[in-house]
Design a binder for these strands. Structure first.
Length: 404
RNA sequence: GUGGCCAUAGUGUAGUGGUUCGCACCAGAAUCUGUGGAAUUCUGAGGACGGGUUCGAAUCCCGUUGGCCACC
């Protein structure tokens, strides 16, 4: 903790956006920055050398998943996560609290963090699982902690703040998260409040039990309820965390999410602010503008594996998203150009859309790496441009250029 | 040449004398936000050809064509 420090180098004049440097024991992170998610001590399809080559400054690993596989004690025995995955970059770890949601109500109701109801987002497509006949809830949550079922064998695993801190200490990550309960957009006020209150208790317990050589972020909850967000902001900000994360359900639309940030961020001091689980292209602009320093999100890497590759606005794009093409599309079958003409990533420097489409359809494993490298490169370069623009006072201009 | 078997979507197959032929792959389009899931959703196209039996045939019968197997 002594080695953890956040320096704000530039404050945007027109918005809460800011550029800075998070100094961690494992190295610096220039912000705003996107944190690639490597749940199982690996950003899917990439290795640690790829991360360096792409210019990633850090990564995020997961407590629940690594506890189950291969086990945090084993990782500790092997010298910690950095050594285990041969990655020197600063590592964040999530507390496991998100799995209260992802393995719980999210599974049951098929909803995400931003709770568009499935019928709304799917444009009339119907699913037998929509609305609540989904899969089994693998969690049982009480004020004492969360009982998880293993996704592998159904065995029971109980997490409380102490356990989460112990696991994260074993993992040896540099920035850890306080144990929390992430709620669903379908949760009502009373439930969200109950979850928030125990998250605050767990935050205090986390502070008592964590490894003081690590830096720790507290997590603000409260869903899409203004008074709960206010209460949670006050409670978490009053605790001696090194940084503040904003978690939980972010409402039903992106506008709701923006509003939540506008409620919360003005009440925060200068500690680094992390937005958990968000990171589409437009979100990055909107949230940086509202004062977020770091993001983690599976989006760029997951959609890459599922054929969606980023392109600059104005160079095509799918009907609904001008930042992506679907490389599986028939129109790319004979396209000799790179994914994006202006991209200098290792994939675009060497391969055509036609080739990538072929690899995708043929289910060649190389596709996953090439696609993931491109999307990650794309987002990381975007973050670089955003940092630069904040320094030069041209953030609003850059945002306008991208979002139009 | 003789005998037998077979013919259903681009491919491989299921099934029944009676509303719009089931499935898989495939193809096309989409979804994905602190990663359970190289996952999910939607869409597409079908009974070789010619006769016959029957109220009704993709289903039963005959022939043609094509394929497969065995024997000579």
């Amino acid at each position: 903790m002594a080695e953890f420090k956040f320096t704000i180098t530039n404050q945007d004049a027109a918005s809460p956006a800011r550029a800075g440097i998070i100094h961690t024991r494992a190295g610096d992170i220039k912000t705003p920055h996107f944190v690639p998610v490597g749940t199982l001590a690996s950003v899917r399809a990439l290795d640690s050398a790829d991360l360096d080559a792409l210019g990633a400054q850090c990564a995020l690993v997961n407590t629940y998943h690594l506890h189950l596989k291969p086990g945090d004690k084993l990782i500790k025995k092997l010298g910690g996560t950095h050594r285990f995955m041969n990655c020197a970059l600063p590592l964040f770890s999530d507390s496991g609290g998100f799995q209260a949601f992802s393995l719980g109500l999210a599974r049951e109701h098929e909803v995400g963090k931003i709770g568009f109801f499935p019928d709304e987002i799917r444009g009339g497509q119907t699913s037998t699982k929509v609305g609540g006949s989904g899969e089994k809830n693998l969690t049982k949550i009480t004020d004492n902690g969360i009982e998880f079922r293993s996704i592998y064998d159904g065995s029971k695993h109980f997490f409380d703040a102490a356990k989460s801190m112990e696991i994260q200490a074993n993992l040896g990550s540099d920035i850890i998260m306080a144990f929390d309960e992430c709620t669903s957009p379908l949760s009502d006020y009373d439930y969200t409040k109950t979850a928030m209150v125990r998250t605050h208790d767990w935050a205090r317990q986390s502070l008592e039990r964590y490894d003081k050589d690590q830096a720790i972020y507290g997590i603000i909850q409260g869903g899409y309820f203004r008074d709960l967000r206010d209460e949670s902001t006050k409670a978490i900000a009053a605790m001696p965390f090194d940084g503040i994360a904003i978690g939980g359900s972010l409402g039903k639309t992106k506008a709701d999410m923006h509003r939540i940030l506008e409620w919360v961020i003005p009440q925060l001091d200068e500690r680094p602010r992390h937005l958990l689980g968000i990171g589409e292209i437009d979100d990055i602009f909107e949230c940086v503008q509202r004062g977020i320093d770091t993001f983690d999100c599976v989006g760029p890497t997951r959609i890459a594996r599922r054929a969606n590759l980023y392109i600059l606005p104005g160079s095509g794009g799918t009907k609904k998203n001008k930042f992506r093409i679907n490389i599986g599309g028939a129109k790319y079958a004979a396209d000799p150009t790179p994914i994006d003409e202006n991209c200098e990533c290792p994939t675009c420097n060497n391969y055509s859309r036609a080739y990538l489409r072929h690899l995708y359809l043929a289910r060649e494993l190389s596709y996953f790496r090439l696609a993931t490298m491109h999307n990650l490169w794309f987002v990381l370069r975007l973050m670089e441009n955003i940092r630069e623009s904040i320094k030069e006072g041209s953030f609003a201009e850059l945002k306008g250029k991208w979002l139009g």
